[in-house]
């Protein structure tokens, strides 16, 4: 990556605990969510226990990677210095086929092109040796 000359200067997650496990899968270019082995429900963000059935047993299950845009905001004025040069950019909530939602970005369209319900699929953006972020692109194939 040509940008690797400059160190990554945006906020990064702590790569520890369950959050770290989520991002470790992303580093392998896999989007995985916890699925409760007690009741079979997916969950995000990662938690120690299933809020539906109280089971503490779960597994990391690979997502289809497909979802739709649930809502977004177009950030025109950055409110964090690390994003000052990134505007305009749009944090997006994606609703996955598995039912869970996660906050991410759609990297191949401008904020003006976003629409609620737009089909998207996961991609991965390696921002440092340690960190790969799950991002989304417009779904390439009609389904």
């Amino acid at each position: 990556m040509s940008e690797q000359a400059t160190p990554y200067d945006k906020p990064v997650p702590a790569l520890t605990g369950l959050h770290g496990e989520f991002y470790a899968w992303c580093r392998d270019r896999e989007l995985r969510f916890q699925r409760c082995t007690g009741c079979g429900r997916y969950r995000h963000v990662p938690r120690d226990i299933c809020a539906h059935c109280s089971s503490m047993e779960w597994e990391w299950v690979r997502s289809s990677g497909r979802g739709t845009v649930f809502t977004w905001t177009d950030v025109v004025r950055a409110l964090h210095p690390a994003f000052a040069a990134a505007t305009p950019y749009a944090p997006v909530i994606v609703e996955m086929e598995e039912g869970v939602r996660l906050l991410s970005r759609v990297v191949d369209c401008t904020p003006d092109e976003l629409q609620i319900g737009m089909p998207v699929e996961v991609d991965f953006q390696q921002v440092s040796d340690a960190l790969t972020l799950p991002v989304f692109r417009r779904a390439s194939v009609a389904r």
Partner: peptide
């Protein structure tokens, strides 16, 4: 917020609530 919002640039109250307003 630190691990799942801020890396994507969701950092401040108007942004959080804008997601709700848009919906």
């Amino acid at each position: 917020a630190r691990d799942f919002y801020m890396p994507f640039g969701l950092t401040a109250p108007p942004q959080w609530y804008a997601l709700m307003a848009r919906r």
